[in-house]
Design a binder for these strands. Structure first.
Lengths: 133, 133
DNA sequence: CTAAACCTTGACGTCAGTGTCAAGGTCAAG
DNA sequence: CTTGACCTTGACACTGACGTCAAGGTTTAG
């Protein structure tokens, strides 16, 4: 099939597909006129690439995955790719931890501000009492 | 003080400091020769900017924070900046949730792979028994 | 025949925060 | 005076996954 059809069948733009091909993630034959010619398996491959991207892998990382990622369908994952998954998992957990730290610091600022505004409210209230009834 | 000293006292590169100034986060006078002239308060300001960046704010966002962020030291935060903090907190929590989803998907892949390899191990073991003792 | 729709490669734009030249002015010490 | 350290502005480099425009060839429907 030509790139337009593959794009339609995967929901990925032709531009992105060319990008994946240039990155070595996809292989395509050529028609006599120079048009790319994809086989049916390309649909699954593109979808697989999209899944990998959603998992947080860069195209470069995905390119290091061996062919076994594709040969047996999505369920079969060979040991090299498996290690990449473990590494990525670790990376993501580190990222999560960092973000949680950030979140906690932000919460601390907000709590301090709330505390402080409560303080001023009490101070204002005391002033109110002193001058009020 | 000149930019080099400020850089040394904050651990931020002169290049970054000029960038912060151009972004409107810092104000500097000029000496007769055109050199930037920072006051002592600039040290705290730069450190504050660094803190904000670590909290995940872009320079553009930081630029929208009013002067009150600086006037009272780090502890005093006015309401406008406070809202920005709440927004950023929400943003970060969304980000964390997304990453946790990713992590879970990765874990699912790894668990599936482990399960599968256990299956093949059992299969191999059965073959072993059949041909073995 | 022609317009529309599709394909090709190449190359620049985006976002953000710097790093890193380039080309030059300034200033203190020797 | 000269060297060297420090300062100035301006502008390109980088990362990543594309979007988008350019300029052109191909094919298909009418």
């Amino acid at each position: 099939m030509k790139i337009g059809e593959l794009a339609a069948r995967t929901g990925v733009s032709p531009r992105a597909i060319r990008h994946y091909e240039k990155a070595g993630l996809l292989s395509a034959g050529r028609l006599l006129n120079g048009y790319r010619d994809f086989g049916d398996e390309a649909v699954a491959e593109v979808k697989h690439v999209v899944r990998m991207i959603r998992l947080g892998f860069s195209l470069e990382e995905i390119a290091t995955f061996p062919a076994c990622m594709f040969t047996g369908g999505a369920a079969v994952v060979c040991s090299v790719a498996l290690q990449a998954h473990r590494d990525k998992l670790e990376e993501i957990e580190t990222l999560i931890a960092e973000l949680e730290e950030r979140r906690d610091r932000l919460l601390a600022v907000l709590r301090a501000a709330a505390h402080q505004s409560a303080e001023s409210a009490r101070a204002a209230s005391r002033n109110q009492e002193a001058t009020g009834p």
